[in-house]
Amino acid sequence: MAGGITKSDIGGLLAKQGILIAFVIFMIGFTIANERFLAPENVMGVVRSSAILGVMALGVTFVVISGNLDLSVGSMMSFSTIVVLDLHDKIGPEFAIPAMFVMTLCLGAFIGFLVGYLKLNSLIVTLGMLSAIHGLTLTYSGGKNMDIANKGETWFAVFGQGSVLGIPVPILIFGLLAALLGMVLGKTPFGRKVYAVGGNGVAATFSGIPRARVVFTCYLLSSLCVATAGLIQASRSMGSQNTVGQGLELEVLAAVILGGASLLGGSGTIFKTIIGVLILGFIQNGLLLVGLQFYAQYVVTWVIIILAVWLDIAAKRGRLLSPIA
């Protein structure tokens, strides 16, 4: 009927905005189930606890938009956390922090070289590096956890425990980094090259875009964000297990996909990634408030990833179900 809402219109809306619609439904349900859900202190707590995941997701957004994956970020975060904690007592925080950043960037550069210049499959490379970096972390730490000796005599805690004008420093770091990388992705020639490489790598190469260099730089940015997340984690706890980042790679990828970045490359924004991080954080917090155990989050994360991938593919073809089905 002319002017009416058709079945295809509803399907198209669900395909494009289904995650946000589901998020609104979740928020309403959690608010009804527990009145503390939207309390200011709970909201601030969720955003603060999501900052580490969010910082990592910012870098992975570049990688995914370029048409690649990075499954090494969890183990790389463990490595950076352990390294900065170990070096803190040996050489002091003013030298430990830059040393950790350099070491983490070297890992990112190595992955970028393999994927960008040698053109190896990013899934295979980063899956292998996940195990390799985990082994490197265990070797570096001797299989032991790390703790700062004199916790009350160092300014190192400011990155994870400090606040400015009532706003926790982790949130400020997340916000500032998101604003900077958002400008890089959306307002610079490099950002346009990232979209071009992810949208059609062959066409981008023939257009004169240095595809290998763009991919290499995306992995460098990802490792920079991971090092920042490791710094926040180490500063927040002032000690850490050597497996602190284990499993985070899937949560990071889920947040990026929830934000609308396509696994096929060429689409996504920093702003939408932030939304994806917050969706994941509030859903996990809501599940805990209604009484579900923390391990139920793993099942929910899996469901969310499947739903996000389905909606992503549906948005590309303009309908929820395959025409062949």
Results as ranks from 00 to 15, higher is better:
S50H: 05
L176N: 02
I148M: 13
F37K: 07
I65F: 05
A96R: 12
Q284K: 14
T104D: 04
L165T: 09
G67N: 00
M146R: 15
R211P: 00
Q161W: 00
F26N: 13
L181T: 04
L85Y: 00
M44I: 07
G135Q: 07
S237W: 05
G135P: 07
A51R: 03
E35C: 00
F101L: 15
F30Y: 11
A22H: 00
G162I: 03
G3V: 02
T273A: 12
F174L: 10
Q161A: 08
N42E: 09
N42D: 10
L107E: 03
L14K: 09
R236L: 02
I283H: 09
I209D: 03
I133A: 12
L181S: 07
A51I: 02
I52A: 13
L180W: 01
T269C: 04
L263V: 08
Y219V: 14
W155P: 15
G152M: 06
K144L: 13
D86F: 05
D70H: 08
F216R: 07
A178M: 07
V303P: 03
T205L: 10
N68G: 12
L136K: 11
F62D: 10
T104F: 02
Y295T: 10
M100D: 01
V303H: 01
F174A: 02
T31A: 15
L287Y: 01
L130F: 04
A15Q: 04
S8E: 11
G11E: 14
L320G: 10
L71I: 08
N34F: 04
G230Q: 06
A157C: 00
R211H: 06
S80Y: 02
V46P: 06
V158W: 07
F62I: 06
V184F: 07
V84D: 05
A234D: 00
F110N: 02
T228A: 15
S267E: 11
M1Q: 08
R48M: 11
V215H: 05
G54E: 06
V277T: 04
A325N: 14
W155D: 10
G245T: 10
Q293S: 14
G12L: 13
I124G: 12
A204L: 04
I65H: 08
G268H: 01
M76L: 15
S207P: 09
I52N: 07
G18S: 13
L176F: 05
K16V: 12
I283M: 15
A132M: 11
